[in-house]
Design a protein around this nucleic acid. Sequence first.
DNA 1: GTCTATACACCGATAGAC
DNA 2: GTCTATCGGTGTATAGAC
Lengths: 184, 184
Amino acid sequence: MGSIDSAMGATMLKAAEDILRDEGYAALTSRRVSEYAGVKQRLVYYYFATMDDLIIESFRRLAVRELERLRTSISSNHPLHDIWDMCMNTADSRLVAEFMALANRNEGLRQEVIKFIEESRDIQISAIKKALASGGSKDLKPVAIAFLGSSVALALNREAALGVTMGHQTVKRLIKQFCDGLEG
Amino acid sequence: MGSIDSAMGATMLKAAEDILRDEGYAALTSRRVSEYAGVKQRLVYYYFATMDDLIIESFRRLAVRELERLRTSISSNHPLHDIWDMCMNTADSRLVAEFMALANRNEGLRQEVIKFIEESRDIQISAIKKALASGGSKDLKPVAIAFLGSSVALALNREAALGVTMGHQTVKRLIKQFCDGLEG
DNA sequence: GTCTATACACCGATAGAC
DNA sequence: GTCTATCGGTGTATAGAC
């Protein structure tokens, strides 16, 4: 078995992500990955025991990258604006859609997705708490701000990818006003 | 070619929806549909020219049903509460995830999904306008309320299906307070 | 580490009998 | 309206040579 951290292992994980985003999970096959990587199909099974392993490792790679981006993008001056920008410029919504669909049926992936959601929400909550001098009002707690922000950003990205823009400008203005109101 | 409105056509559309929700779009094959319907594979192609047609008709059926539910669930007394309840009790989030993923790559389905999103948003906006005596403030327009509501409800359902509940109670309370504040 | 070759199952779609 | 039968293609996964 080859290592995931080897050049070829990384190439295959990159290929898997590209295929998922551009062609969907039904096209994520060992043959398709091997084409992308310019090798023969058999080699995929040298680096990944099963296709399930490849999918899970692929998500793990994405999650690590996104959590890293989230942590470093939060400045101490405008954490709310930073979180919002980060949510709006996150992983491609088509790729997210594939992982979401897969996670409903793949137990291993589901666990990874749960960990990712909870960890990123924790990071966002910490940043929001710092932004709010009072630590959040009785009506608007940090966890609610984090949830609303990421939900709305995801929906905006998803619809934009489909070609729907109805109300998007209004919503973006509203969010910006909200952030401005809390941290100028 | 058989009609979609025939008993067998409806049975196959129902089968397609069940398979999508329970096994994902990779399992939505003519053979699988025929098993569900208790007939032979060949018959699927008597009712649907291609599997793409079956998928699109399947979504259309769902869209018609949901739009109908949305229209009839809105009372004149508590439209905001009604919309929220409807969004929280909409189609299974696993089924939605499959259609969302498919729509990014299937042009015909994409058009149907766009129509559905815009039509349901229109219905929601009309109801919200009636609820707001002023027709919406400068900062909180009906379209923004509609967008935020459906985004957040979808996210709550999606995460609940995965097994994540972090912040859900807080968010639900917040939404309820908001609706109560506007329509008691 | 990468390859050839293969087993076996399933796919969409079609021809044509009843 | 439903069936049997079949085509060519693709899927996961493995055996084993180099």
